[in-house]
Design a protein around this nucleic acid. Structure first.
Lengths: 222, 222
DNA sequence: ATCTAATATCATAGTTTTGTAAAATTCATG
DNA sequence: CATGAATTTTACAAAACTATGATATTAGAT
């Protein structure tokens, strides 16, 4: 479920945006001032930011500029919301590094559509990030975390977990696992898969019990 | 005003792309065949290339390969345009060296946005100076500092560090590193990359431990 | 409860991958 | 074209990882 931050000083509009996005199944945090937004950003980086151009403490343009300078937020998808209709503003916004813009007043439908479209455009990067309960797999960093703590996995363990996590609640046979992780056909007497399942469970700690054995069939993560 | 080359055999699409980009204030030259494109490239190197995957005389994939081998075009921003989803997945899987991808059919808005985004990305990578914790890389002065002290790096070491630092927290395979820093394909038995990683770590001192080895995958800086 | 086949676990030998020093080669520069 | 620096290759060491067969345990059938 994508996380969206809203930065908007007008309480009314902030409310409308928040409700509209929540109803569309997004997680939303809304901020009145840039300062509050920055503080939260240090904590969790969202999937998209909806940014008002005119704010009391700092202009939206300057915020975008700052975000683009920081490597952690360099590619963060940003939609600017502006009251001015002049086309120059739009172009300026895009040139400053926003990914899209919405002109006030906007319809709920337009807001949702644009958010959806932008997320779709950037989704290829999100696929690299898998989450299942308290397990998190960041494919770019090649890092797995449980409850926020890094779990060191070997290559095969990592690939195995990734396969399971990309197919949550789907029982995968040893044949399928072998083919995907090892690239070879499974031979009946091999204990290799079991072995790796075992170490994986071990390294995941309590969370390891999420990997369930289905006798005569294979393994699932749920 | 950035210059963009388009390589696309379908006249209709070529027209649409050309007009859309010209309206967005880019200079555009469009080519039907790879051959014409190469000829023009000898003359002037553009700021970005929009490259169709399926061309009559040569595949876009091969073109990218060639461009990456040539030091003059090694870093030339490339957006690949592909018709089939399956094709796109394949290309992405191969990690062929393009910087972005657009799937046909695309909206004008999407095309413009991606072009803009890529130009912005490469521009900021070229000009800005990079900072990652206590490491600083000033590309204009070609100087690297750790905790304010200048670290003398050779050309390859510098380029390697720069590649890592422009992709913080992203694991880069030896293939990718080779392609970007050396402009050649990686051959399995070569220890060249490892060697440079080693000297780089050494020269960075304690900070060298920021470069993490991901076994079977590659290296990351974090 | 007993049996049996499937799964879990263990220890470790063997393999693969990475690290590094040193030699060989290439490259740039006067 | 000589020289030293930079780069690449070689060769081996070290570390990390994986597979395997033996053995223990468990779930499910009877």
């Amino acid at each position: 479920m994508p996380l969206i931050y809203i930065v908007e000083d007008d309480e009314n509009i902030r409310e409308i945006e928040t409700i509209a996005l929540k109803n569309s199944n997004y997680m939303v945090s809304a901020f009145e001032k840039a300062k509050d937004f920055y503080k939260k950003l240090d904590d969790i980086i969202p999937d998209l930011v909806l940014l008002d151009v005119m704010l009391p403490d700092e202009s939206g343009y300057d915020i975008v500029k700052k975000l683009r300078k920081n490597s952690a937020t360099k590619r963060l998808p940003i939609i600017m919301v502006t009251a001015k209709t002049a086309e120059m503003d739009m172009i300026k916004g895009l040139d400053d590094g926003a990914d899209d813009y919405i002109r006030k007043p906007f319809s709920i439908m337009e807001l949702i559509t644009r958010v959806k479209a932008l997320l779709r455009r950037t989704e290829s990067e999100e696929i690299k990030f898998l989450q299942l309960g308290n397990i998190t797999l960041d494919h770019e960093r090649h890092i797995v975390q449980v409850d926020g703590n890094v779990v060191e996995l070997t290559f095969k363990e990592y690939e195995l977990l990734r396969l399971l996590m990309t197919n949550p609640s789907v029982v995968l046979s040893r044949e399928v696992i072998m083919r995907h992780v090892w690239g070879t056909e499974f031979e009946g007497e091999s204990r290799t898969v079991d072995m790796h399942i075992k170490t994986l469970r071990q390294k995941l700690g309590d969370t390891g019990s999420r990997i369930r054995t289905v006798r005569n069939v294979g393994y699932v993560i749920e």
